[in-house]
Design a protein around this nucleic acid. Sequence first.
DNA 1: CTGAAAGCGCTAACAT
DNA 2: ATGTTAGCGCTTTCAG
Lengths: 342, 342
Amino acid sequence: MGVSLKDIAERAGVSLATVSNVVNGYRPVGERTRQRVQQAIDELGYTPNLSARHLRRGRTGLIALAIPELTNPYFAELAEIAIREAGRLGYTLVMENTASAYEAEMSLLSGAQRHVIDGLIFSPVRVGRDEVLARASDTPLVLIGEEVYDAPYDHIAIDNVAASRLAVRHLVALGRRRIAFIGARVDDDRQAAHLRLRGYREALAEAGLPFRPELVAVTAQFGRRDGVRAMRDLLALDEPPDAVFGYNDLIAIGALRAVTEAGRAVPADVAVVGIDDIEEGRFGTPSLTTIAPAKEEIARLAVHRLVARIEGTAVAGPLTLQTPFRLIERESTVGAADGAVR
Amino acid sequence: MGVSLKDIAERAGVSLATVSNVVNGYRPVGERTRQRVQQAIDELGYTPNLSARHLRRGRTGLIALAIPELTNPYFAELAEIAIREAGRLGYTLVMENTASAYEAEMSLLSGAQRHVIDGLIFSPVRVGRDEVLARASDTPLVLIGEEVYDAPYDHIAIDNVAASRLAVRHLVALGRRRIAFIGARVDDDRQAAHLRLRGYREALAEAGLPFRPELVAVTAQFGRRDGVRAMRDLLALDEPPDAVFGYNDLIAIGALRAVTEAGRAVPADVAVVGIDDIEEGRFGTPSLTTIAPAKEEIARLAVHRLVARIEGTAVAGPLTLQTPFRLIERESTVGAADGAVR
DNA sequence: CTGAAAGCGCTAACAT
DNA sequence: ATGTTAGCGCTTTCAG
């Protein structure tokens, strides 16, 4: 073992409690005592044993961020911010990879990690409102990304319907008439894919454009490959689309690849827009027009809310927080301007 | 608090030790006793308190993966595998973001996380041989990615010199004569960038091509933007390169973007190759030729070696393990073939 | 402002 | 095969 509180107490000639108070600052400590203790700490190189602290406090200092995949840059960017914020608040963040699997999501949700984590930030994919409501665990939970109506949990996300509307309006404004949507499993109306589809339909309706089911492509996952496949199918239609709105940037990037492979021009023949504003989209050719969510804010809010719940701090404001987003126009819809990467 | 061992012991009418043995299996337990205990566990919904276990065992069950940035897809892919492997071995992996900062790397190396993590997998960027050798902490350490000669630690990486040689030979074989290299801080000869530069020079020498200092571009970081900037400079030369070898895929992707922006053709005017085989490179236009390291093997080896050191298991084999790699030819060097994404 | 001591839940050494 | 118990290092009453 290393240096413990006891060692410091002996060295400084004070009690355990006093050392603890110097370290934690719960109670005032006399200036001279404090200095002696601090000196002993420095000399012996003391670091608190967190396991002991956690055992005593009944908390572990660990919070989990459960996401479908770390290799989706959107989640990697989110995770990077969340890790930093958690650290600032004295917590360590661990990543849980659900791989979009129902079992993994349920396991996390129902508290398989009790005694391991103090709280959970969860981005559900397969699990819906019913499962969240039925949850038995009392581990604090913050939801991100998905809409789970009326659940008694904090929920942080962009307004998916409005964001999608904005994306599609942009395509409409460019004069596109046959606008396709590529998303995943839209049959399940609890999912964000459904909300984004709804925004898509609303924007079409606003513009007086008909909704054409054949222009909606369903994918199994949310990756680049899914976008490629779906786009190939769309291009094979008798009347292929002149624009595509992808559920996320990865799907949109896949679509971009498929259009280019097919020898058609972006945006001349097909304009493409996604959601997420991942860095990859800024540097591709063509660069990708996208809806940029306030990732910094989402991650920061999620961590702070969760920590507040864990520590029992009063939390003001509604459970559901909608974070801002904006349209970033790039080459995939408006073509190359000065040619510079933004 | 929740349900503890004691609660189970009372319910099942046995001692604490017996319950512990049912849970951990250290000692044999009679079949009937086991069943009674198991039933109590199920009924009361017991999960072990890890803080207590860790306090008692003197270990936390946490290992850290310290990388320069999670948003570099190479590291995200590595992390995803490492998280999975750690979980299989009963450990939880936490990510430490050094942001390529010297202080952050030193802090981790010198054991600021003592009592928090049982071991560290570390991908150094700023820190070199001297710092690693001077390390005082006794937390087990496994190095990945960088060459730190003669340090008494496990080290897992590809042969950077050989990998670079392979990449540049490929460009030579395509008939390129003015081959540039884009890397970071090559002045420091302890870094991988230096090794990759050496491989580059060796391949040039083999081919009887002169080494031209003006064709070596130095970047501050390892991102796409760095690649763009460096490539712009290279293109501004009186005699611009006809091929570029990027330190990693992100830099190569930035270079790709710069070439395209400048209105030149890839690979006709400039061929581009990187290292890492990140998924992004497979779906860009043009797709990126790259050296693919065995990421699965690197991550798996790193975790297993580290856990072996933590648990004091005898570890066979040398400290330094070189993992395989291979060249993947794509459009950025050989042009579009059938147009299909691999 | 400081000290003494209980006890968080668990594992492992020692008994039986 | 099972029981008893010390003690890991810390925080936090309760005393002084």
